[in-house]
Design a protein around this nucleic acid. Structure first.
Lengths: 214, 214
DNA sequence: TGTACATCAGTGAACGCGCGTTCACTGATGTAC
DNA sequence: TGTACATCAGTGAACGCGCGTTCACTGATGTAC
């Protein structure tokens, strides 16, 4: 690995080797800092140490790159949600476990929104990706998309008698609306800049409301 | 009024007369069609029939214009919410009236989001404008901002015994999160393109949830 | 009522910018013989 | 094992674009005398 001395590194090989992934990774970094608008083709190639038009070997256009980055960001959301569930202490009983897993879905979602607002905005910028996202690109390590994780958690509530079966249909959209709305208010609405502790409390209150109102 | 013949009209006078408002109006039109990113200084001046830099007599920079447009869009939101309340049939009793006014707040908000997604996004694009917006620029004809309309409606619930007093604090953010979240899902989430009737139903379900869970 | 003058809203021309995208190319890699 | 060749990932140079913003200006308007 030769160095140019200006902080950039040069490839040993003429070929990059894994430019597609490098561009997605660069795009994620741009999105992390500035949201979807910041996913600029030239900036991504710059960061990957490659000439601008090299991107066209791997993506049809800027939109295709942004789409791939958005899917990757969605997978990050799923990962955080899964991690939140995995960190749960062992449940006293199945019903308590189902309830905790449901709440963890919302908590993980909100935690990601607070910790990675740029990625969060990028994940949801490309319309319609959440429910219909290809599972192989938008899923977390567990293989589920955020929307599927929510659905599974709701099923768990029903199975344990915590949610009447006739309330199950459409429940995704009730829960999701409330949590997503709070996320947006925390990111660039009037709740932006709230202390993480307060933000967590607000999240718990919204999840309380959902449990009561669902 | 002389005409150039190419569809644009020329001022009679050397001076425009009300360029500031004309630029805001043009900005609203751009926002209506393309959201906040579409509020482009050159496009606004073009639409106002004026040379680009003329805008600088009235706005410090593009950001100042966008801010003014955002405030105007917020006033439109307030106006729609007030209209929704004004269209309510006379209530059977005070409690029913308070409840109807509360629901109208959400319904009006959601209606605006569906009918004017570009303006809706523009209204909320500039962070923090909702709660702290200057009442004179972001308020509807009734003089209240959307956030104030929500607060007043919640107060009405408390006054009529429909909401326990100890649940009042912070209730804005619960209600608002849920409705705002649904609005976002309807605009460019997976619920985008829903038939207006279905969207209305979804709105009613979310508002039901809020009433139960608040 | 008429004239001189200050004000300042809008003009005209130009700038540098980074962007996405195109073209013809080059040279490293892997494969066939 | 060695050589010829096809492939195709990345290069280099260039394009046209609309953008925000700056400068020195002009001429309509309202005010003071």
């Amino acid at each position: 690995m030769a160095s140019t001395g200006n902080g950039k590194s040069k490839r040993d090989t003429y070929r990059h080797g894994d430019l597609r992934n490098a561009l997605i990774e660069a795009g994620l970094e741009l999105a992390r800092q500035g949201g979807p608008e910041a996913v600029v083709l030239r900036a991504a190639t710059r960061q990957a140490g490659v000439v601008p038009n090299a991107a066209y070997r791997h993506f049809a256009d800027r939109g295709a790159l942004l789409h791939a980055v958005s899917q990757a960001a969605m997978a990050h959301v799923a990962h955080t949600m899964e991690a939140e569930q995995a960190a749960l202490p062992p449940a006293e009983d199945p019903a308590a476990g189902a309830r905790a897993r449901f709440r963890a879905v919302g908590t993980g979602y909100l935690r990601f929104a607070q910790e990675e607002p740029g990625l969060f905005r990028t994940a949801f910028h490309v319309p319609g990706d959440m429910t219909h996202a290809a599972a192989d690109t938008a899923a977390g390590p567990g293989g589920k998309t955020p929307f599927e994780l929510l659905g599974t958690a709701l099923d768990g509530l029903v199975e344990n008698g915590l949610l009447p079966e006739d309330r199950r249909p459409g429940a995704e959209f009730l829960a999701w609306s409330a949590v997503h709305g709070l996320a947006v208010l925390l990111i660039d609405g009037p709740l932006r800049g709230l202390h993480p502790t307060q933000a967590h409390d607000a999240g718990q209150h919204v999840i309380d409301m959902i449990e009561r109102g669902i």
